[in-house]
Computed example of a mutant assay.
Amino acid sequence: MSGANALSLPASISSQLPRNEACESALRLAWKLLERPIFNHSLRVYLIAKHLAEKEDSPFAFEPRLALLFVWAIHHDIGTTDAYNGAERFEICGADCAKSHLLQHDYSEAESHQVWTAIAIHTSPGIAERIDPLSRLIRIAVLSDFGSQHYRQKMGVEEYCKEIEKMLPRQDVEKALGDAVVKQAKKIPHVDSLTWPTDEKFPKASWPGILLRAHAENPDHTGVNPAF
């Protein structure tokens, strides 16, 4: 790629990325589709998860499983994009994208489904942390990137999070991500702020559903979604 759309990362970041076609093409797709704040968040989540995996001597810190960690992280919010805005909640749409991508690059059904599960439940507290080692790593990394002092202090990543934010700025990711999820409701025919969309896309008890409800209750709010 070249010009304004060229993907350019600091050497200290790019040197930590897996070097295979599955990961490189996943990165290019994320760069092309994700809003910059969400792209930066996705990369930070990868770096935090990798950092935790290394501290714990987890197999996900090393190839070949590092590639699964990377594809998970870089695609975990890709379901918020127009290209992958399907009939189900954004987590499922992103999980489908990542699994399809891995299968196309000759990863096994079991490996691809492990990534699918980790993306599909990454907004499900208490489940993601315990269902699978990969899901746990990413859930903790996501919460750490969004400033959870419990996990930042418990896992010893406070300074590391601050360090990578200097290279991959936050750029109001909380607002960008919350708005991206809610905006998908407008793509559903015959839905307005007083009509609940399909249960598949915005289940009422899910994180997308809670975000949408908060927006519907205060549609003129211009800051970060109160339910974020």
Rank of each mutant, 00 (worst) to 15 (best):
E129C: 01
A53Y: 06
E158A: 11
A73K: 05
A141C: 14
K154C: 05
D106G: 00
E88G: 00
S108R: 02
Q104F: 13
F146E: 02
F62C: 00
G178H: 04
E91L: 06
W72R: 02
V182S: 09
Q184W: 11
K186N: 07
I48V: 15
L102R: 11
A87C: 00
E174F: 09
S144R: 02
L137G: 06
A98M: 07
R130N: 13
T117F: 10
S124N: 07
P64S: 12
A49Y: 08
A83Q: 15
E111S: 15
L102Y: 13
A110Y: 05
L52K: 05
V157F: 07
T117Y: 08
V157T: 10
H190K: 14
V173A: 11
E163D: 14
L137R: 05
Y107I: 01
K99A: 06
Q184S: 14
L177E: 02
F90Q: 06
D172K: 11
K187Y: 06
E174L: 11
D132H: 15
D96M: 11
G94C: 12
K186V: 04
A95G: 11
L52T: 02
A98V: 04
P189V: 03
R139I: 00
E159W: 00
G94W: 04
L168S: 06
A120N: 10
Q153G: 13
K187N: 12
H150F: 14
S112K: 07
V181T: 08
E165G: 09
A98S: 13
V115S: 12
A180T: 01
P64N: 09
D172W: 05
P169R: 09
H105N: 10
